[in-house]
Every structure is written in structure tokens, then in C-alpha cells.
Simulated assay, not measured.
Amino acid sequence: MAHWQCIQGCGACCQLNPSDRPDLADYLTPDELAHYLSLVGEDGWCINYDHEQRRCKIYETRPDFCRVQPDTFSRMFGIDPAELDEFAIDCCEQQIAGVYGNQSAELDRFIATVDPDPET
């Protein structure tokens, strides 16, 4: 069974361009939305994303809306904790494909990480 996990050296979720996420106000509180928008750099990437290292500079203290955890996804999207892995994997696959492409090394690595034995 596939289990969601973040992969190092990806950062696709740090591409925050609001035009790619027109429904932000549907799942973020007004304060969270303001915080989210304050993190968007001129290039659409989070201002805390280190492009050279390909990692979040504030990972340990990142906002709740950046965390893939049951309580956050339940509150924001109404996802039952039992469905978190499937939902998060689908979200990540879409985001990685949108940022890096359907045939990218990042997407291949993510899929291999979350489902190392797809035959089971």
C-alpha cells in the first residue's frame, strides 16, 4: 500500500503562484490566506524556498497549511485521516507534474518513494 512522504530535493509544493490555486480562499482562513500571499515571491515561488539546495529554509517552523498531516487536511479539505495518504499522493503527483513535467525525475522519484512495490 502506498504511503505519502515528502521527498528531498523536490520543492514542487513551494511553487505558490496563486493563479495556479484559484480556490485558496475556500480552504484557508483569511489570516492564513494573507500569510500565504505574503510568502509568494515575484517568481511565484515561496520566499523561503532555497532554489540551490532545493529545500525549505523554514521547514521545521513552516505554516500549518504547508504541512501534510491529518488534522490540517481534515480542517482544510475535509479529508478523513484514513484517506490522507491517497489524497496527498494525488495532490503531490499533480503538483510535481505541473511544476516539473509528467516525465520528470522528480515525479519518478516521488512515485518510487511513496509506492516502492506497486505490484502489492
Rank of each mutant, 00 (worst) to 15 (best):
W4F: 15
W4S: 03
Q5F: 01
Q5W: 00
I7A: 02
I7G: 01
I7Y: 00
I7K: 02
I7V: 14
Q8E: 11
Q8S: 11
Q8D: 10
C10A: 04
G11M: 05
A12L: 04
A12V: 02
C13Q: 03
C13I: 00
C13M: 04
C14E: 01
C14H: 04
C14I: 04
Q15A: 11
Q15S: 03
N17C: 02
P18W: 06
P18M: 08
P18T: 07
D20Y: 07
R21T: 07
R21H: 08
P22W: 01
D23W: 02
A25Q: 13
A25Y: 01
A25K: 14
A25N: 08
D26F: 05
Y27P: 00
Y27R: 13
Y27T: 08
Y27V: 09
Y27E: 03
L28D: 03
L28G: 07
L28P: 03
L28N: 06
T29G: 10
P30H: 11
D31G: 09
D31S: 15
D31V: 12
E32H: 08
E32P: 10
L33H: 13
H35W: 10
H35S: 12
L37C: 04
S38E: 09
L39S: 02
L39F: 00
V40M: 04
V40R: 05
G41P: 02
E42L: 09
E42T: 11
D43R: 05
G44W: 06
W45H: 01
W45N: 04
C46A: 05
I47D: 01
I47V: 12
N48Q: 14
Y49R: 11
Y49K: 12
D50F: 09
D50E: 13
D50P: 09
H51C: 08
H51D: 13
H51N: 11
R54M: 14
R54L: 13
R55L: 14
C56D: 06
C56E: 06
K57S: 15
K57L: 13
K57I: 08
K57V: 10
Y59T: 06
Y59L: 05
Y59I: 01
Y59S: 09
E60W: 06
E60P: 00
E60A: 15
E60H: 12
T61E: 14
R62D: 06
R62C: 08
P63V: 05
F65M: 14
C66Y: 10
C66P: 08
C66F: 11
C66D: 08
R67D: 00
V68Y: 11
V68I: 15
V68P: 06
P70Q: 03
P70A: 15
D71R: 13
D71I: 07
T72Q: 14
F73S: 04
F73E: 02
F73L: 15
S74A: 13
R75A: 14
R75K: 14
M76Y: 04
M76F: 04
M76P: 00
F77Y: 14
G78H: 09
G78M: 11
G78A: 11
I79A: 08
D80I: 01
D80L: 11
D80G: 04
P81Q: 10
P81S: 10
P81K: 02
A82W: 05
D85T: 14
D85M: 11
E86S: 15
E86G: 13
E86K: 15
E86F: 10
F87A: 15
F87C: 10
I89H: 08
I89T: 00
D90T: 13
D90N: 13
C91W: 14
